[in-house]
């Protein structure tokens, strides 16, 4: 089992490395670079050459990649093209804010999705199932900008509980953007709940129809004990990977929601960086998102292995 985890981890590192190469090559292939972006119309002749020299853009691509990669490994993403500020610092607060937002949405969303999924699965085709199943699909199909706008309309404009427009700096203490945080995480919860809930509903239905649940019934096990001890431990296993994807999606910065609420997270920074052609920042954010995906999926794999005895010894025997 530990060998398997080690292998997965190594594979994850390789994935992140490949992503870094692809990002670097992609940025290289784009016409123009940080200097053309900074100098805009003056980007020609000596000025351009001087700028490139100053930023180290005149060295060969391989050398620049090595330098950049070495920095990234130490947590130093270099300087942003525009403001000459440290990307690590710039991104740091954004990561914190996005993490907070994701944590808020997950803390409410995952338990809610699991509860609704289990109840729907147990009451298959009866009214609680129909109500929840339709409800989450409706919530998911409403585009996030519509949901966000409606929430702002209701809570900011009609009720006046939160300010409609907030311009909180990214490095402000979290409490200052609490209103946006609440609204944004509500929208995210609505978006993510459907996948997880439906997955859990399906696997609860499958588990409740399984031979082992029938056997437990005929062994005289009371209903709720069957649900909690026999059915759910099996039914929740396949949900781990779906939850992991949701978590990764949230951590990666949810662009539209952050932009609509003007929330100072990673997603909004990415949008800003792209429109400013601040390529070093784009590179940095993409790397962070890729590493997050790899990391979260690795955690999900390890969890699955740890919780599913079948997977555990099956793999062990194969080795």
């Amino acid at each position: 089992m530990y060998g398997l985890i080690a292998r997965r981890f190594a594979l994850g590192l390789v994935t992140v490395w490949l992503v870094s190469v692809i990002i670097f090559l992609g940025v290289e292939a784009l016409p123009g670079d940080a200097c053309t972006a900074i100098l805009e119309r003056d980007a020609h002749g000596e000025a351009l050459a001087a700028c490139r020299k100053a930023m180290g853009l005149d060295t060969p691509a391989l050398a620049r990649y090595a330098e950049w990669a070495a920095g990234v490994v130490q947590g130093d993403f270099g300087m942003s093209a525009g403001g000459q500020e440290s990307i690590a610092q710039m991104v740091g607060y954004r990561v914190r804010n996005s993490l907070l937002l994701a944590a808020g949405a997950l803390a409410v969303g995952i338990p809610l999705a699991i509860t609704l999924g289990v109840v729907a699965g147990l009451t298959r085709d009866r009214w609680p199932d129909l109500l929840f199943s339709t409800g989450v699909i409706l919530a998911m199909t409403i585009p996030e900008f519509v949901a966000a706008t409606v929430l702002i309309l209701v809570f900011a404009i009609w009720l006046g509980w939160v300010p409609a427009i907030v311009l909180t700096p990214a490095d402000a203490p979290p409490l200052e953007f609490f209103p946006e945080f609440i609204l944004a995480s509500t929208v995210l919860t609505m978006l993510m709940i459907a996948h997880v809930m439906r997955m859990i509903r399906a696997s609860v239905i499958e588990a409740m129809a399984s031979d082992y649940v029938q056997m437990a019934t005929l062994k005289g096990v009371p209903y709720w004990r069957i649900v909690f001890r026999h059915a759910l431990p099996n039914a929740l296993l396949p949900a781990i990977n779906v939850i992991a994807l949701t978590v990764a999606w949230l951590l990666g910065g949810v662009v539209v929601v952050e932009v609509v609420f003007n929330y100072p997270g990673l997603g909004r920074l990415l949008v800003d960086a792209i429109s400013d052609r601040d390529l070093p920042v784009v590179q940095a954010i993409t790397m962070i998102v890729a590493a997050t995906y790899v990391g979260v999926n690795l955690v999900a794999d390890i969890l699955s292995l740890a919780l599913n005895p079948r997977l555990r010894s099956h793999r062990a025997r194969q080795r």
Partner: peptide
């Protein structure tokens, strides 16, 4: 009913591999 099932009246299922709870 639960007292009788698995108590005085026992069942031996066809496919025990699937009738035993896999996570216990």
């Amino acid at each position: 009913l639960a007292r009788i099932r698995g108590g005085k009246l026992g069942l031996i299922p066809q496919n025990s591999g699937q009738a035993l709870t896999p996570t216990q």
